[in-house]
Design a protein around this nucleic acid. Structure first.
Lengths: 276, 276
DNA sequence: TGAGAAATGAACAAAAACAATCAAAATTGT
DNA sequence: ACAATTTTGATTGTTTTTGTTCATTTCTCA
């Protein structure tokens, strides 16, 4: 789908970028997307491997786990990368220039961050996610406020009283909230209390609340409910499971489903996903 | 598409602009779009390369300072890395387990963060620096509080009212403050107002204030003074310039100088992983 | 565990891009 | 307007990159 890239260095940068985003690439997909032969891709991967930062595998390559301060820059979606991109692109249509957005932590919101930067829109974003904030701050068009608080190293995001108190100063147009679980009866749920509390606070500080959830999250119910479905203005998802969607619609929720362009990242090599 | 540009300087500007936007260009496309021969484009690229900012490649060129996600791969090796490590190791001797530390942004404090993680000491650290916080959060022994606020992309650190107000809740044992400039008469100085204000706030919230400064910073005076020398409990530096040090000592400051020579480094058993 | 499929690396030939050179065209200074 | 200088485009031989083929290795799954 990407235009043919005939510049070897630029092509390698493209590969590295995709590795950052998806964490893994396949020789086959790269050769198809970049319009070159698989041999060329293999040679590229070898070069990139020399420079560190990736590890070659059969069928492709995976990004090395970023260490130390570089974690903050690593934009990576472990799974459903294509679905998350599709959701993010769909969500982009809801955003107007000069708006103020809230975004909580989560890989779907990372995907949205990429689209925000690409859009060159002037925006203000408030987020507890360190990697979302670091990514967004690279754009001269986006003003980023990072919510303070204790840093959880698993997610590299802040939460707790400091974050909530700082959040209370803001008034946003849209809150983009990435779900951990969403059901018609239990609403939006998380497995950590502080995530749920912060999500609820975000909901109350934005005119519009939009939930982003891959099909994996729909029907999932975690321990703590952040808020119920009637607080949700819109759900953007790639889920096409009619049963679940029907339930959610009957709970009074608007739902926007987006197509994930099939074929693209159809088959990632299976054995390498859990490398650490 | 583009009308034929007959002015070489204007054409080069067009090329540079496209490099800025797209990150990469190809000789073929430029020759077609600008209506000149490929040889001309190659000459243009060579000229632009001389001025820096781009790197020539087969097939075209790419922007030298890769933007966006690519920065993650380019871990900038910092100036005076050896001196900063030596200062950080020296500062480590001043820290006891279970203390609460304040650390402002700056590469010397990043070096200190490495030592903190390596030490396996139980600590609490409060910092506005995103990369310092991300680095420290790797350690299970360190509790990290990230100060909230607007994120400056040059330094990837927060500052401003939110950070100060959050900071006011903490009471720390030691504030490690990385200097931008330090002189006996003007005290600790910064080029940005908000950095200076935050440094002053840190000073007031810690029992002990320790300044970390490489020799490059000593004698340097920037626009804004954070606080004067009498607020400083100790200066840790690699500077051996007797004149400057004498001035600072006369201003009532304790000074600890550390050796940076390779010999000293070898004798110390710090085997930090230096992971890359 | 083993057969079959997929992916890999090496070798080589084709294609693309390159630098160097030189002459034509354009620009500049007088 | 004219000569000097710079810029440009075409041609050449050379270098780099790419695609293809094929023997070998690795993976899959029955």
């Amino acid at each position: 789908m990407v235009s043919k890239i005939r510049n070897s260095a630029a092509r390698r940068l493209t590969i590295q970028r995709q590795l950052l985003v998806d964490g893994a690439v396949t020789v086959e997909a790269l050769a198809r997307d970049l319009g070159v032969s698989e041999a060329t891709i293999r040679r590229d991967l070898s070069v990139i491997e020399q420079e560190g930062a990736i590890r070659r595998t059969h069928g492709g390559a995976i990004a090395e786990a970023p260490r130390g301060a570089d974690q903050a820059f690593a934009i990576r979606e472990q799974q459903d990368g294509e679905a998350k991109r599709a959701i993010a692109r769909s969500a982009m249509t809801l955003i107007a220039p000069d708006q103020t957005l809230l975004m909580n932590d989560g890989s779907t919101n990372l995907a949205l961050a990429r689209e925000l930067v690409a859009s060159r829109m002037r925006l203000t974003v408030i987020t507890p996610g360190v990697n979302i904030a670091a990514y967004l701050s690279e754009s001269p068009d986006i003003t980023v406020y990072l919510l303070g608080g204790q840093l959880r190293h698993q997610t590299l995001s802040t939460s707790g009283g400091f974050a909530e108190s700082m959040l209370s100063s803001f008034n946003a147009d849209i809150a983009f909230i990435a779900a951990e679980g969403l059901t018609a009866t239990s609403g939006l749920t998380y497995s950590y209390e502080k995530d749920a509390v912060l999500a609820a606070a975000m909901n109350s500080k934005a005119k519009t609340t939009i939930i982003l959830a891959t099909s994996r999250k729909i029907g999932q119910r975690d321990r703590i409910t952040a808020f119920s479905t009637d607080a949700i203005d819109l759900l953007v998802t790639d889920c096409h499971d009619t049963k679940h969607l029907q339930d959610l619609k009957e709970a009074g929720m608007d739902v926007e489903t987006c197509a994930t362009d099939a074929g693209t990242v159809a088959s990632l090599p299976t054995n390498q996903a859990k490398s650490r």
